[in-house]
Amino acid sequence: MIEIKGLSKKYGSTQALSDVDLQLRPGEIVGLFGPNGAGKTTLIKSIFGYIPYSGSITLDGEPVTRKNITRLSFATCEHSFFPNIDAKAHAQFYKDHFESFDEKRFNVLMEFFSLPKDKAIKHLSTGQQNQFEVIMALCQGADYILMDEPFAGNDIFNREDFYKVLLGMLGPDECVLLSTHLIEEVSGLINRAVLIDKGRIIGDVQLSELEESGRDLMDYIKKSFSYRSDRVFEALDQLVPEEERHEEMA
């Protein structure tokens, strides 16, 4: 289990994360939702120790170090692959460094998404690069797969395929933390939603709980973020008088 306690992070005078407590358990697929600048990326990078922070992050009771970091994998829209080498060389490199690299899964996914294995990754399209980034994270053999906006730039059909494949192939103990803005799309994939705003966790719910209480994820999120749809009309009223707007609409 990844256990985060009292995690705080400041960039200059900006408080990026403030006293965050969170647990990620084996087998969970967790959606991490929040507006831009809420602290999603900072939270994920803190788990890996890519940035300094205050607080505690442990993996099965141990701090995350080189000894256990291979149990975590990372897919990011910034991309963490090696741009000048091809997929085959990536697979070999991962095999050398990650003992539990799943070559079978790698081959199946590469074929499923029709990605070339002998072309430097920098020559693939952005969408294909995103696919490759996610494939490497899924095939590393990690227990915890952390993804930060991995599908930015992919079309809807592509993303749908990914969700289906992901659901079908994940092992019972594999945990996925998926940071994304595509709430409705992933609502059928995740089993828990964590909401973050201004560096604080403002919501944490199992989707089964929502179902039992007859609510849906979008409503829960809107309520948690105190979303006011009337703000749109207020803004429009200031720009275009209401009668004029009605006339145009008519």
Partner: peptide, 16 residues
Amino acid sequence: LGRNETYSYTLQRLSV
């Protein structure tokens, strides 16, 4: 090698 050379994220997850 590229505009966003962030493969260091992977290098930092190695035992080397």
